[in-house]
Amino acid sequence: MRKFVIAAAVALGLAATPQIAKAAGGVDVPSQSWAFEGVFGTIDIPAAQRGLQVYKEVCASCHGLSLMAYRNLAQIGFSEEEIKALAADYTVMDGPNDDGEMFERAAIPSDRFVSPYANEQEARAINNGAYPVDLSLIIKARADGANYLYALLTGYREEAPEGVDLMPGMYYNEYYGGNQIAMPQPLYDDFVEYSDGTQATVSQMAKDVTYFLKFAAEPSHDERKQMGIKVIIFLLVFTGLAYASMKKIWADVKK
């Protein structure tokens, strides 16, 4: 058993090496507490719903969410009718029809979130050359994504500190690499009005939209952890039985 412990420790040590290395190179952002953390963590559904509102009313004017379909919203508690109604607010280009014409129609639940731009070139033309990234995977595409996004959204400062020359059209953000970001501060207190009565402070909205984007980055998050618990319980029993059997079988082997 002692040797087994050594073997396991070596395995863990090897597995931990890259993380130490990665932590040493990353940007430090303050950690928040999130409901999806830990083995039993899940997406906070009311927060994710409020986050969708923040995304729709604030982020969506510049940022796409192209990997998400409207139907995915069922997983954060929206009913089929609500999703249909929500999708119907958007128009998508479809076709060609039998006459060879492209036509516009209202979006349906199986459509992906409609992008604010026709293409990247249009996005750049509108935004002074900068390209507002698609937010579908933003939480996974940044180191410590949830904390980073929250820090970024709450990290704007009215004025750059002494000695920092902001380039024209840039804004000062404490947590953006290089501190100069082309995106103006997106959130101000009471920018949106929550229907559940939650006070829409900047930090509340930042947190809510982070929950929503965490869900968007990985719609299977809750399912994954719930299945994981079952798998681990099964494996504990399996490994325990294997261990007991091994002890019994090996009992007659002389050292």
Binding site: A8, A15, G228, L235, L236, F238, T239
Partner: peptide, 8 residues
């Protein structure tokens, strides 16, 4: 079994 626990 031990390996699969780490894997899972």
């Amino acid at each position: 079994g031990v390996f699969l626990l780490v894997f899972a």
